[in-house]
C-alpha cells in the first residue's frame, strides 16, 4: 500500500504563481557586491509581479571559496538574510549562502524566505562533491536532511546541485509530498565532443526526469561567469510537471526567466500519470532495509 497522503498546512486550492530565476554572475567571495546584485534583481522582479525569485547555489558568495568559506559564512538569520527579506517585500526568494552553525560548522546552504509570511526554510547540501574538479568536503560540513517544507504556493523541495545527481533525494521529496522542486546549482560547463555541452545534456535530462516521474514542476537555477578558468554555463530553466519547458535561459549570459506555475497543469499531469499516488514507499523501504542487512552481513571488513 502507498503511504497515507502527506499532511500539509498549505491551503487548497492553490493559486497559480509566477516563478522567476535570476541567472547571475557572482563575484568570488565579495558578499557586498553580490548582495547588491541580489537586491537589484529582487527590485526588478518585484516590479514585474514575480512571486518567487530563485537565485543559484552560493549566489551570495561564489563557488570556489576554499579558505574563504569561514570568512564569508553567516548564521541563517544573519545580516544577509535580513537584507534579502527586507528587500523581498511580499515576494519569496531562494538564495545560496554559506551557513555557519553555532558549533562552527560551515554548510553549503540555500534559504527559502517568504516575504509574505516571514517564514524561512534552509536546506544544507547533503551531497558534497569531492572528486575530479570538486573539493567540497574539505571545506563544508554535509547536511543531514532531505525534507519538504510548506510555502504559500504549495509544498516545496529544495536541492543543491549534486543532491540532484542522487535520485534518492527526489524519491524522498516525492514521498514527503512536494508540489514543486527547486534545484539550485553551480554547474561547470564541460564536455565539448557532442552537439550540446555535456553539462547541459545532463541537467536537461535530470530536470525533465524529475518533472516527469515525480509529477512536479522543476525550477533549475544555474549561474554564469568564470572562476579560475572554470566556466558556469547558465541554461537555467523552468520545467512543467510532465517535462515540457516553460522557460529557458540562454547559456553563458546573465539573464532572467520567468514562468507561470499553474497547479491545474500539475493536476492534469497527475491525473494522466499518477505515479506520486501509486508510489509504494513501504516497498522501497523494505527493499532498502533488506539490501542494508544483506550488505552488512556480507561485509566482513568491519
Amino acid at each position: 500500500m502507498p503511504f497515507p497522503e502527506r499532511p500539509t498546512t498549505v491551503p487548497f486550492p492553490r493559486p497559480p504563481f509566477r516563478a522567476a530565476v535570476a541567472q547571475v554572475e557572482p563575484t568570488l567571495g565579495n558578499i557586498k557586491k553580490n548582495l547588491a546584485i541580489h537586491l537589484d534583481a529582487i527590485d526588478t522582479a518585484k516590479r514585474d509581479g514575480v512571486d518567487l525569485l530563485v537565485f543559484p547555489e552560493l549566489s551570495t558568495t561564489g563557488y570556489y571559496l576554499r579558505d574563504q568559506v569561514p570568512e564569508v559564512a553567516e548564521p541563517r538569520n544573519g545580516p544577509l538574510a535580513k537584507a534579502i527579506l527586507e528587500a523581498a517585500g511580499k515576494m519569496s526568494v531562494v538564495y545560496g549562502f554559506v551557513e555557519e552553525s553555532p558549533t562552527s560548522r560551515f554548510y553549503n546552504a540555500a534559504a527559502f524566505i517568504d516575504g509574505t509570511t516571514g517564514k524561512s526554510f534552509v536546506h544544507r547540501k547533503v551531497y558534497l562533491p569531492t572528486y575530479g574538479m570538486f573539493d567540497e568536503t574539505r571545506y563544508f560540513a554535509a547536511g543531514g536532511r532531505v525534507a519538504a517544507f510548506d510555502t504559500r504556493f504549495g509544498r516545496f523541495g529544495l536541492l543543491i546541485c549534486e543532491d540532484a545527481w542522487h535520485l534518492s533525494c527526489g524519491v524522498i521529496l516525492q514521498a514527503d509530498g512536494i508540489d514543486v522542486l527547486i534545484i539550485v546549482a553551480n554547474s561547470p560547463g564541460r564536455g565539448v565532443r557532442e552537439e550540446e555541452l555535456g553539462s547541459k545534456r545532463s541537467w536537461e535530462l535530470a530536470t525533465r526526469t524529475y518533472a516527469t516521474f515525480l509529477n512536479v514542476p522543476v525550477i533549475f537555477a544555474n549561474r554564469v561567469g568564470y572562476e579560475d578558468g572554470v566556466n558556469f554555463w547558465g541554461g537555467s530553466a523552468i520545467v512543467a510537471a510532465g517535462g515540457s519547458w516553460l522557460a529557458r535561459a540562454p547559456e553563458f549570459e546573465v539573464a532572467r526567466i520567468s514562468g507561470l506555475l499553474d497547479p491545474r497543469d500539475t493536476r492534469r499531469e497527475r491525473i494522466l500519470a499518477p505515479m506520486h499516488r501509486d508510489e509504494r514507499v513501504h516497498l522501497t523501504m523494505e527493499e532498502l532495509d533488506r539490501i542494508r542487512h544483506e550488505s552488512y552481513r556480507a561485509d566482513t571488513s568491519g
Binding site: L28, N30, Y64
Partner: peptide
C-alpha cells in the same frame, strides 16, 4: 588555499 580569482 584561495582561488586566484579571489575577490574578483
Amino acid at each position: 588555499r584561495y582561488a586566484r580569482d579571489w575577490g574578483t
